[in-house]
Amino acid sequence: MELNKFILAVIALKPEKVGGCGAPIFYAENKEEQDKIATTLARITEGVVHDLENGIYIIVKH
């Protein structure tokens, strides 16, 4: 089975919720900034923004 979904970036409101390495993490001040960063990154990476519902967005390449 081929692995074909990748987390490209993490956009977090709360720094304590994310950690480790693998994908770059971007911290946002508020939801507005988070949306903006997420949209920009999604356009650049051709990925899709997903909401983990705990203040964290991930960008996934499908």
Partner: peptide, 9 residues
């Protein structure tokens, strides 16, 4: 269907 992030979308 799926989980979608931003309000715009």
């Amino acid at each position: 269907f799926m989980n979608l992030g931003t309000d715009n979308i």
